[in-house]
Design a protein around this nucleic acid. Structure first.
Length: 439
DNA sequence: TCTGGGGTCCTAGGACCC
DNA sequence: TCTGGGGTCCTAGGACCC
């Protein structure tokens, strides 16, 4: 803990929904819900007008619709969110070199490096207030809630106390009095499971937590978590603000509106996801050794299987083949609602490519037909182009009919159309070298 | 027809090595 | 005829965050 309230936490208010209202004046003052709009979608962000009706983040879109049928339901324009986020992060970095983004809409800023004349409460308060105004300017109208405190924990708690469009400074020395009456859930890392465990032990507030010994806490919630809670309950937090944290994994996953049962289709989808993961790895100059697939069954049981290669890869074919091999060991007969592929164990260098695809030393993998862009046979997952519908990908094929899903960034679950296999309007789509698809 | 997507961190057991 | 201990890597699952 520092002597001064020099850690700042900034949080953009109802970020995705606010960007939509900014860009579309007809939505201002109205309930807006951004999230998945498919049958299994959930809410990412609800505008404050929608929150009045009880719509919350992580709620199923179905429930949000029933609570607030007249809201605008939008699937999200991530390019616009990224752009607004970038404007804010750039502004913050112009103020201090130590900026730690937590997501598109949140960051810590270390004011010890902001070149202020001093770090007294009045000084940092005036500085933060002015900065909030500059954030609104830089984003053409978005508002931010800001908290200042002697640690990350306190700054984060503070930014939550006067939302939206607020500023709270917790004066040094007042932290523990502030925390004591609060629920244990204010502590980052205390979610539903931990809250329930603590509740059974009679612990519901930070004051309760403070009264529990370290040994007892470790017994209740484990070693790392227990010692973390013990410290945070006393407002002891020395975590530094760290700029430029490196990514540790890259993954793509998707939940499908209806459960998948066709293994061939699942393989096609995994192949497609592997391609997206590989593209993102290459874009950031990364490669990784561990390939993981994630499979969520019809009953929501979630399985993962991973395999670590001898050397890092960023090759679609290697990731795809490994992913399909991992799937081969799983029983998916009850149906699958989610499939995902990830790569971890990242290195910021790429293996020198001595063997073409560099898979010479890998264990033999089962024979699976890889969808191939240059052939006019339609395999699930392959990219196609239709003269009228534009770009899409093969969802299924057979008996002379090919089903294509036309999907864009705006509509992840786009329209599905079926064509005769030999329909001349349909052609294979070969991706350009290193497409720079999204920011 | 409950329950997203992209992440991080932790735990625990087994293999393997010294 | 009894059975170490520490360290590291790998795998699977789970909690949590925004």
């Amino acid at each position: 803990m520092r002597a001064h309230a020099s850690v700042m936490h900034l949080d953009l208010d109802a970020f995705f929904a606010a960007v939509e209202q900014r860009d579309k004046p007809s939505l201002r003052g109205k309930p807006v819900v951004v999230g998945g709009v498919g049958g299994r979608g959930v809410v990412s962000t609800a505008s404050y007008e929608a929150r009045v009706y009880g719509v919350r983040s992580a709620m199923s879109t179905r429930e949000a619709r029933s609570r607030c049928p007249h809201a605008a339901f939008l699937s999200g324009r991530f390019h616009a969110y990224r752009e607004a986020s970038h404007a804010v992060m750039s502004l913050l970095r112009s103020v201090s070199p130590l900026v730690e983004p937590l997501s598109l809409d949140e960051a810590f800023v270390d004011l010890e490096r902001a070149g202020l004349p001093d770090l007294e409460v009045e000084t940092v308060t005036a500085f933060a207030e002015e900065l909030r105004g500059r954030v609104t300017e830089a984003t053409r109208g978005l508002t931010a809630s800001v908290g200042l405190g002697t640690s990350k924990f306190i700054a984060k708690v503070a930014s939550d106390l006067d939302k939206p469009d607020g500023l709270v400074v917790v004066a040094p020395g007042t932290e523990r009095d502030l925390l004591r009456p609060m629920s244990v859930t204010v502590i980052p890392g205390v979610g539903p499971a931990t809250t329930e465990r603590l509740r059974r032990a009679g612990i519901t507030t930070v004051a309760d937590l403070e009264a529990v010994s370290l040994d007892e806490l470790v017994r209740l919630v484990g070693k790392a978590h227990g010692s973390g809670l013990w410290s945070l309950a006393r407002a002891q937090d020395d975590r530094a603000v760290v700029a430029d944290r490196e990514a540790k994994s890259v993954s793509v996953e998707g939940t499908y509106d209806t459960d998948l049962t066709d293994r061939r289709l699942m393989e096609g989808l995994l192949t497609r996801q592997a391609g997206e993961v590989a593209t993102r790895l290459r874009k950031h100059g990364l490669s990784g050794r561990t390939i993981t697939i994630k499979v969520r069954l019809h009953d929501f049981t979630t399985l993962s299987r991973s395999s670590t290669l001898v050397s890092p890869t960023d090759a679609t074919a290697t990731i795809a083949r490994t992913a399909r091999a991992l799937l081969a060991d799983l029983d998916t007969s009850g149906g699958v609602r989610l499939l995902g592929v990830g790569v971890s164990g990242l290195a910021d260098w790429v293996q020198e490519d001595l063997f073409g695809e560099t898979e010479a030393e890998e264990e033999p993998l089962p024979e699976v037909e890889v969808p191939h862009h240059s052939r006019r046979t339609w395999a699930p997952g392959m990219d196609v182009e239709h003269t009228e519908m534009g770009r899409g990908w093969v969802w299924g094929s057979g008996r002379g009919v090919v089903t294509v899903r036309f999907e864009t960034a705006e509509t992840p679950a786009g329209p599905v159309r079926s064509y005769a296999e030999d329909d001349p309007a349909l052609s294979a789509w070969v991706p350009p070298p290193l497409p720079d698809e999204q920011g």
